[in-house]
Design a protein around this nucleic acid. Structure first.
Lengths: 231, 231
DNA sequence: AATATAGTGTGTATTCTTTACACTAAGTAA
DNA sequence: TTACTTAGTGTAAAGAATACACACTATATT
């Protein structure tokens, strides 16, 4: 039973709730812990913050080591600092969420020292998690549920080209409610932040839908105005 | 030039943006630093987090030591972790905002070791601040500006009994825009979260306005619904 | 007693936004 | 050719947001 942390000192860490959207399901990336405490438990990916690294960089590093991805949308959402959240000493953790595109199946990089594997698990089907990670996850989920209503973060989860139905499904799983198709499309198209492409969906056994792209330039123009994406 | 922090270790601290509303002005509480670095500069009240103290408690302690107040509305809003934000070593700081009632003039408690005085300063008239405290303040201000639009935090800043005009003025200073009196009153009263009292304002040399209270019980009932308090 | 002053308190019409709701069109598979 | 599955579309009604101006009341002043 190794002691990683000296009992007498505080340590800072990062934990990440990494969202992906695949096959109509919202998932997060979990790792299986290799080490005590909570050996063999599922946990959020995380790590100690190094002295020469800003916390934002530390978060990006974790994501990169796990997925090989860079320049991903990430944002800090809360810092958890209860005295006893870590059984081996005082660890304060800054939590981030990230959103990544799972185009089909994304290969995960081999995992480093402290975890034996990393897997995408649907948010509606999560196992028990180590430490206070369930609390962290649920607060992160609240955060994106709230944020998606007024910021265009949904597009970070979709492939670059997507159909309006896919976009709507994503809103529905995040908000956990059904939306009206006609109203949703009307509203989305009205914002003028989608570019309609000349392409259509391929490989479906029914009428193919038009593809759209998120138009960052138009969005930037409207940026001063707040948009409302929910309901 | 004393060195408070060992160069080789990380330290966690708390900084607080403490808002008060007085005489039509929004103010925050600043302290004058007694010690290096940034001796004699104005700064946000803050402190090191002790090992046996959760970060929420640490924040409450700072507020209590400074104002003698307990059970005040406080919320964490961001953690600042740039490598060089503190000239003497790595200090990661968790920032909180608080809102307190300044009924007339509130006496501040005598200040502890690291500060020579604490003063209420209007947010529109802030001096240069130590460290990255300007950034912290401005993010905290953004936070309440955003939050006041959908949560009843404004009442934390007003005396228990207030007039609709006072309430409107507070919204106006936080949102930095003029609001229409008739629309504001209509909207506020429609929410049904204000209790109209049988009392009137006293000591004014013009027609006295009715006093209202925030009705927490009614608010709790509506709580599932999000309210919109802006515009 | 009359008047000036300063802030309180109120209603309506217009525009914009949100919601509710159901059928035809297009493509694929048999 | 037919059956199946999803794409794509419009309108009416209700609700929310905005714009806008004047009479009322309490006090202070002369």
């Amino acid at each position: 039973m190794e002691t990683i942390l000296p009992k007498f000192d505080s340590v800072f860490s990062i934990d990440c709730v990494i969202f992906g959207f695949d096959d109509g399901e919202l998932k997060i990336l979990l790792i299986k812990r290799n080490e005590e405490p909570f050996k063999d438990w599922w946990a959020l990916p995380g790590n100690i913050i190094q002295h020469d690294q800003s916390i934002d960089l530390a978060a990006e590093r974790i994501l990169y080591e796990l997925t090989g991805l860079k320049d991903i949308f990430m944002e800090q959402f809360h810092t958890f600092g209860d005295v006893n959240r870590h059984p081996q000493g005082r660890v304060i953790t800054v939590a981030y969420y990230a959103m990544i595109r799972l185009n089909g199946t994304k290969e995960l990089k081999p995992i480093s020292n402290y975890a034996s594997k990393a897997v995408w698990i649907p948010v509606n089907d999560l196992p028990k998690l180590a430490f206070d990670h369930e609390k962290i996850f649920s607060r992160g989920f609240d955060k994106i549920r709230n944020k998606i209503s007024y910021q265009p973060i949904a597009f970070e989860l979709l492939p670059e080209k997507f159909t309006l139905t896919q976009l709507q499904q994503l809103y529905e799983v995040i908000l956990s409610k059904k939306l009206d198709k006609r109203n949703f499309r009307k509203k989305m198209l009205n914002y003028g932040i989608l570019k309609e492409l000349d392409e259509k969906q391929k490989g479906v056994s029914y009428r193919a839908a038009k593809l759209y792209k998120f138009d960052k330039r138009k969005y930037a123009k409207l940026f001063q105005k707040e948009l409302t994406f929910s309901s």
